[in-house]
């Protein structure tokens, strides 16, 4: 392997890369790239994984909803891994503690520390399932690591670094389009994630109101509410 890039490498940088390279880069070429990136991350920023030991080093499913595949990240400090999975695979097989879904551009902001802990849950476009604490820990851990996705990609694939392998060379060419594509992605993908049936919602709402009223009545009957 060639020399390590100067800046820290984000564990999710390949997510971005994949977003840009989705068509030209087949799975077989992408996976070694992911492995390289996570290994570099481990070497340069062991503290990210060390911070996650406080929540027992969870596995995460990172699901950019605008891409046809997702990532499973294992955060064991000794052997972290980042694995490409297809979006239509059964999620139970991944054995993850939590999943984070959202448009690619938001996941990158999360990664760069631009979405902070308090704001993490405010966005309806970022959906967190499973262990909320683990996701908060992930955010805090990466925020502590001065990650800059732009710089990471530059250092990993830019003209000054030696390409790590063929896949990286292909990806590197795509990098020039990075900023423009990101902009396009951001405007295209901020639509609501889930559309719901209004009629069904209204029915549920009615039922819930009834339940709420019943709960109250029940307590009144036993004479507790004055």
């Amino acid at each position: 392997m060639s020399q390590a890039p100067k800046g820290p490498v984000a564990p999710l940088s390949p997510v971005l890369l994949a977003g840009l390279a989705v068509r030209p880069l087949p799975h077989q070429l992408l996976q070694p790239l992911l492995t390289t990136a996570i290994k570099q991350m481990q070497r340069q920023h062991p503290d990210v994984f060390e911070r996650l030991t406080s929540v027992n080093s969870p596995r995460f499913l990172i699901d950019p909803v605008d891409l046809p595949f997702s990532f499973v990240m294992d955060t064991q400090p000794d052997h972290p891994s980042l694995e490409l999975v297809k979006s239509d695979q059964n999620e139970l097989e991944f054995h993850v503690r939590a999943s984070v879904r959202g448009p690619l551009v938001l996941l990158i902001e999360l990664l760069e520390g631009k979405i902070d802990g308090d704001a993490l849950f405010f966005s309806r476009d970022l959906v967190i399932e499973g262990d909320t604490e683990a996701v908060l820990a992930l955010r805090n851990a990466v925020d502590g690591a001065d990650i800059q996705v732009h710089n990471d990609l530059l250092s990993l694939f830019g003209p000054l670094s030696k390409p790590v392998d063929l896949a990286a060379q292909v990806a590197g060419k795509l990098f020039n389009r990075f900023t423009r594509d990101l902009h396009i992605l951001s405007s295209a993908t901020l639509a609501p994630l889930q559309r719901k049936c209004d009629a069904q919602s209204a029915a549920i709402e009615d039922l819930e109101e009834t339940v709420t009223a019943l709960k109250k009545q029940l307590r009144r009957r036993s004479g507790k509410t004055t």
Partner: peptide
């Protein structure tokens, strides 16, 4: 008005 305190419920009506 509330000799034992005033009840505060959640939005789904739970005490």
């Amino acid at each position: 008005k509330d000799p034992d305190g005033m009840d505060l419920d959640t939005l789904d009506g739970d005490a």
